[in-house]
Design a protein around this nucleic acid. Structure first.
Lengths: 229, 229
DNA sequence: AATCAAAATTCTGCATACAGAATACTTGTG
DNA sequence: CACAAGTATTCTGTATGCAGAATTTTGATT
């Protein structure tokens, strides 16, 4: 019967968690965030509500809500009565953020050593190996994405939701810059050495060593990214 | 002439920075946040747009914008099609957040030792002395507020905007709980000892010691606050 | 031609209106 | 009396309308 098929469908959905009908303003948040990261909207650009709304094909109401959200993430700035502009990050802003990110990742590493399962660590090892593969081929974009995945994974393995969340916000602010920074001259060697030590420290569950190298790794990121600001 | 008075007024305003006309949704963000912190809106409470809007005397549009903002701060949760509820924090959520806060404050302390001026450190000393005065009088609320001020001040002295901002978000989430936690039995002695060491390490610009005691201080906060969840 | 004032336009901030989903209620049936 | 189906109501999501602030354009004067 058709009824059974419907029931199966519902179970399928339920087993994947509550049904989250996507809403327009959430989609707009994601879309505008991507537009900023991908450089379609450059820092300093004014985000006219009517204008941008027409481009995205939405009315002003959900767009305004999305802008409010992005403002609290720190990606856009709202001046009352003036409107929204894509936030400009100074060199100091970026450096400051990287210092905090380094500290957060260091903490995440320490916690991951204590809280991750062997299987989870093995998954990171596999990401690492695939990344090294891409490094061998000098295949930049997959390398970049796997790199990001490894860092996110370590955050997840800390099993600390608050940590994941604050890291995510800060990470989002810098994504654009890291994206550009990666397009520069190839200074991969150092980063790769760091990553070798990261995965080995994680497998050894050496919390202190992992924490140190993750924090130090950020300073290198700063050097690689600096020119892009 | 009247003209001169007006000019003076304009200069007065200009010297205080650009005129930021307060907007309704910003006011709502602040108001609702306070209502949550002060317990007027308890975790799990549904925030009906029409209902709450009538209470606050505003229409749904700015209220929705405010809720979006608070959602990204993590104080309320939005389920599409269902509405907003005041977020419930599990015991683990709180513990996780405190661990991150401890790490962030530790970093702030380290940076403050490097970046604060002598005058700024002296200001913190004065806050500390006033706080100890309130401790002597067992005057709870001023003690609590001065305590918060000292921690915020150390964050400021780190001169790291990103750090201040992520700390602020996490701090806001826990403010309610710390508020209640402080109402419990008086376990001030340990906290006071910590604070003595904090100010002394700061004055000595002993980054390692300050960082350690700030991080450790959070664990004590956890014990003091634990019962309130 | 430059500058300043004033009018016109544009844009934001807020309220309201409407459609569709979610929830509560009612009523009928076993 | 329990329960299910259908209806009614409420609430969210989005669009639109309007008032006032901000900006741009225009025009006048020197």
């Amino acid at each position: 019967m058709a009824l059974e098929a419907a029931d199966l469908l519902i179970n399928e959905i339920d087993s994947r968690g509550p049904i989250a009908r996507p809403t327009l303003h959430d989609a707009i948040v994601a879309r505008v965030r991507d537009m900023i990261i991908e450089g379609e909207l450059t820092p300093g650009t004014r985000l006219h509500e009517g204008n941008l709304g027409k481009i995205l094909g939405v009315s002003r109401t959900p767009l305004r809500e999305a802008l409010k959200f992005l403002a609290s993430e720190g990606l856009v700035e709202l001046s009352p009565g003036k409107g929204a502009v894509v936030r400009k990050f100074t060199e100091k802003d970026v450096h400051d953020s990287l210092i905090v990110l380094g500290s957060l990742e260091g903490l995440a590493g320490r916690l991951a050593c204590a809280n991750a399962t062997d299987a989870e660590i093995h998954e990171v090892r596999q990401l690492h190996d695939r990344m090294m593969d891409m490094y061998g081929k000098r295949d930049r974009l997959p390398y970049f994405k796997l790199n990001q995945s490894i860092h996110s994974a370590i955050l997840r393995l800390s099993k600390n939701e608050a940590l994941v969340s604050v890291h995510g916000v800060l990470q989002a602010r810098l994504k654009r810059i890291r994206y550009i920074g990666n397009e520069g001259p190839e200074k991969w060697a150092g980063a790769v050495a760091d990553h070798e030590e990261i995965i080995s420290a994680l497998e050894a569950r050496d919390a202190e060593r992992l924490s140190k190298v993750l924090t130090a790794h950020m300073e290198q990121t700063w050097e690689r990214v600096r020119h892009a600001i």
